[in-house]
């Protein structure tokens, strides 16, 4: 397993943000993690890269148990560039004072690679994510949203990671750019990279994920192959998610069914 999370608990003060979450992503597999605002999906992702300390459970990244890691050991592991995180908002995750190239090469420079070789790699990566080489000397503020997003992807891929966590990578893109980005992620998967694809929208994950995990109020309520989740979900929340995602031919649940599911979820309430 490229990434394995088992029984993970995260507390923020008194809030129990994540309750016993288990999830695994194999090499060359794409797992969609679906959850709405406050469901704990970002918390899970941040715990995997060590930005949040779990209060219980285990996290294994690329075969290495990182659960007890702190400071120096985490840094050493991260420096190997095996796991990368593409943040949701590309504008905020790029330093406004660094050029595109400086941002892309940063992980390599942190590894201590020579500047010249790193710059060479940056050009390769730019080509790979279809970013015009002329943009390398620009500042992020001068780029369009889609271009910035490709910059953050290039930065994440420059260390040839085995696991990439993508936080809402397509929700801010318009239709044409979105299709291109999804095509790109499919190629990435084909090359053996494990992808954890986080989104609030089942629709944007359904087309690319092999398996889907559904987070609801800090708990993973259902995991399964994408097809099963969409067509034969068990948990009412998953069914509501499927029924709520806007579809073209409105084959999804109708209004009355959604109403029922909402009422049902009300009576179940959240996990205690």
């Amino acid at each position: 397993m490229s990434l394995e999370v088992s029984n993970l608990d995260v507390h923020y003060g008194r809030t129990h943000a994540l309750r016993g979450a288990s999830l695994s992503v194999a090499a060359g597999e794409t797992v969609g993690l679906i959850g709405e605002t406050g469901s704990g999906k970002s918390t899970l992702a941040r715990a995997v890269v060590g930005l949040v300390r779990p209060s219980a459970g285990r996290v294994t990244v690329a075969g290495e148990d990182v659960t007890g890691y702190r400071g120096r050991r985490w840094r050493a592991l991260r420096r190997r560039g095996l796991v990368q995180y593409v943040f949701q908002d590309p504008l905020r995750s790029l330093d406004p004072d660094l050029t595109v190239e400086e941002s892309i090469v940063e992980p390599l420079l942190i590894q201590g690679r020579p500047r010249r070789a790193a710059a060479e790699r940056a050009r390769e990566l730019a080509a790979r994510v279809h970013l015009d080489e002329a943009l390398l000397s620009r500042l992020p503020g001068e780029l369009s949203g889609g271009q910035r997003q490709r910059v953050t992807v290039a930065r994440a891929l420059i260390t040839e990671p085995r696991v990439v966590i993508l936080d809402e990578p397509v929700s801010a893109l318009d239709a044409a750019t979105r299709v291109r980005a999804l095509e790109f992620f499919k190629q990435l998967r084909a090359s053996g990279t494990a992808l954890l694809f986080i989104s609030h929208d089942l629709g944007s994950v359904a087309g690319i994920a092999d398996r889907i995990a559904v987070l609801y109020q800090g708990e993973i309520v259902e995991t399964g192959p994408a097809r099963t989740i969409v067509n034969a979900a068990e948990h009412p929340y998953t069914r509501l998610l499927v029924g709520s995602a806007p579809t073209l031919r409105s084959a999804a649940a109708d209004r009355a069914e959604r109403e029922e599911l909402r009422a049902l979820l009300q009576t179940i309430g959240g996990p205690a």
Partner: peptide, 20 residues
């Protein structure tokens, strides 16, 4: 900021973050 978090995920030390 998220770009500092991105650097930390890439293995940056405090010194690196302050300098860069």
């Amino acid at each position: 900021s998220q770009y500092v978090e991105a650097a930390i995920v890439a293995g940056a030390s405090v010194g690196w973050v302050v300098r860069k």
